[in-house]
Amino acid sequence: MHKIEAAIRKSETLHDAEIRFAVEGSLDLKELWQDKSSFDRAVEVFAQLGVWDTEQNNGVLIYLLLADRKIEIIADRGVDRKVAAKEWQRICRAMETLFRKNEFEAGVLAGIDAISKLLVELYPAGKDNENELANEPVVL
């Protein structure tokens, strides 16, 4: 978890966007009964963590549901308008490839790196590069 936090912190020195990472072991019984998808849960976590609450609407959440080995990337509207869904899917698939090899840390770090490269192009760091959201991973 410390390496993930450090990777996010380093990434955010290169761009003006914000990255959050959240991992959840499994959905609870009520959510499973309601047939909640990992995407639906990721949208809830996006809201709960306030990833939408950045000045340029450029927050990105990486959500990992361990039980299903599902990864969702949810981007705020400022980023979402500029990045095609297929790009987020490409990053998720690359992470999943590493997860299948039981390289979870490497998978998460590769995802942060890939997202960072996109964000550097879209939101290069300015002189007032304020850290608007916490960098610590969240365990739900």
Rank of each mutant, 00 (worst) to 15 (best):
D128K: 15
P124S: 14
D35C: 04
N58M: 01
A67H: 11
G50T: 11
E24S: 07
V45A: 00
W88Y: 15
V23I: 15
E121S: 15
C92D: 00
T13D: 00
N135L: 04
V23R: 14
H2G: 02
T97V: 09
I71K: 03
L140C: 14
N102K: 15
G78T: 08
F21N: 00
N129A: 08
G25I: 14
L61G: 03
I4T: 02
I74Y: 08
E72S: 13
K86G: 07
I4G: 01
A75K: 00
E136R: 09
N57M: 14
A134V: 04
V139I: 13
D68K: 08
P124C: 12
L27I: 09
I112H: 04
I8H: 01
T97K: 15
L66E: 13
Q56T: 12
V45I: 15
R20S: 11
R90P: 00
H15A: 03
R9H: 13
A110T: 10
A125Q: 06
N129T: 04
R69K: 12
K70M: 11
L32I: 07
F21V: 13
V43N: 02
I73Q: 00
S37N: 09
E18F: 03
E31L: 13
F99E: 04
Y123D: 03
L140A: 10
S11P: 02
R93L: 10
A85E: 06
W52A: 05
I91N: 04
D128V: 08
D16Q: 12
W33N: 09
Q89Y: 03
L119E: 04
M1G: 07
V45W: 03
Q89N: 11
K86R: 08
V120P: 01
I74S: 10
C92Y: 04
P137R: 01
V79H: 12
K10R: 13
E44T: 07
R93E: 10
L118R: 12
I112C: 02
I112T: 04
D76K: 00
A75G: 12
K86C: 11
D113S: 13
V45S: 05
W88M: 03
E72P: 02
D113R: 14
A17I: 07
A6S: 10
M1K: 11
K127Y: 13
M95F: 05
L133H: 08
I4Q: 08
K117A: 06
A7S: 15
P137Q: 09
Q34C: 06
D28T: 13
D128H: 15
I19Q: 06
S38Q: 01
C92N: 07
G126V: 08
L64T: 00
F104C: 01
L118A: 05
L66Q: 11
R81Q: 15
K101T: 07
R90L: 07
E12L: 01
T13H: 10
S116P: 00
S38P: 09
I74G: 04
V138I: 13
W33Q: 07
C92I: 14
E12R: 02
F99H: 14
I115Q: 00
W88N: 00
A47S: 14
A110I: 02
D35M: 11
G111D: 05
A67Y: 15
R9D: 09
R90Y: 09
H2D: 11
K101S: 08
I4C: 03
V51G: 03
